[in-house]
Design a protein around this nucleic acid. Structure first.
Lengths: 214, 214
DNA sequence: GTCTATACACTGATAGAC
DNA sequence: GTCTATCAGTGTATAGAC
């Protein structure tokens, strides 16, 4: 009988299938936006009948919401490097590195998040008001403390954070423009290294954590 | 008769009506994206019957294309401050100011542009490959010349440009997030001044055009 | 030139067979 | 649990009255 194969295959199969759907959805939402994405396109990319999507995710919006929530939590976890740092130079450099790596590894996710915020955050407004607001306030206090201790140049912590977000996410969100300006080819390993080096050089120098070059 | 009112009213009426449609379309495309926007929504916002839109702009895509082109040319014109500057400190500061003002004055336009690039620039790919690529190369040469003349710190001109774009456009594209983190209210005059000051401080210090603060 | 009415395609979602 | 067949609603676009 199939009594011993059924329970494990089903349970794992479901998780794996949901993950595959979420991955396909992330890609389609990133390419077409929420309005431009269709359940049919997502089903095709996940190699499933359209109706099966509605079994795992009752509505298009519920699927979209899970995609956005997944991105947000990956993004939050990367931000932890801020806390485990011993000082500003190390912490901010590590944060830039982590966010640049995220932009490189999950460009579709970053694009979905950007698109969501761009259009007024209709789905994850509550996250902005609670989790993100709390995280931002906490990090602003850390930066302000570093400034008060004289460990970095006095700058506005809020706008420093915005600059860090904008600059690092730009490499994911505008990857198409960047690739076009790169001769139509994706950034190489060396290109990414140079991008990270350039961003860190300008920002860290800008807030007094690296000596100005001669 | 209406023989003398007809020709001027029609000619000006047409231009004015097209401008009103373009403005309404820009807003709707910014809020909902290309896929989420509907001709009905745009018609309602422009206070016109839906079919009249198709008289002035045959298809939804042609209307969208004109919106994007309009944005792009405004953006290009603002970039001219780069050339009329006598040196790097003045030029880059003026460019930051100009782009921050654009983000403040035309947030919807910036969002439409961002959304277009985000989704792979299906409509304005040719602009990226020609006009934008040319502009970028020209400005990179200007920056490299300033570096060679020892007037600013050696940095990668390409990534400096990306940082300028990312940081300034962030205030338009992510305005909803920024307003949420600002307690749910739009940035005040003082907030904008502080944002511009902060961006210029960090970047100009970062490339050796402002002395590090004590 | 402008608007009303409508054609036609496609969407998200579901009912019901397997 | 999974898929085929189908529905009701909405989208762009147009034909034709004014």
């Amino acid at each position: 009988m199939n009594v011993e194969t059924k329970p494990p295959r089903q349970k794992e199969g479901r998780k794996a299938r949901e993950a595959r759907i979420l991955l396909a959805a992330e890609k389609v939402f990133a390419e077409a936006g929420f309005g431009g994405a269709t359940m049919q396109l997502i089903a095709d990319m996940a190699d499933l009948p359209k109706a099966s999507l509605h079994y795992y995710f009752p509505t298009k919006e519920s699927l979209y919401r899970q995609v956005v929530e997944k991105i947000f939590h990956i993004w939050l976890r990367a931000a932890d490097v801020f806390d485990s740092a011993s000082g500003p130079a190390e912490g901010i450099a590590a944060y830039i590195d982590a966010k640049m790596e995220l932009s490189r590894a999950y460009p579709a996710g970053s694009k979905v998040w950007a698109s969501e915020v761009l259009h007024g955050a209709p789905v994850i407004q509550d996250y902005l008001e609670t989790t993100l607001a709390d995280w931002t306030e906490g990090r602003m206090k850390v930066i302000q403390a570093w400034i008060d201790e004289g460990r970095m140049t006095p700058v506005n912590p809020r706008h420093l954070l915005y600059m860090l977000w904008a600059t690092t996410q730009h490499y994911a969100d505008f990857s198409h423009q960047i690739e076009t300006l790169n001769g139509g080819t994706p950034l190489s390993e060396a290109d990414w290294a140079e991008a990270k080096r350039s961003v860190k050089q300008i920002i860290l120098t800008g807030i007094g954590l690296e000596p100005p070059q001669p």
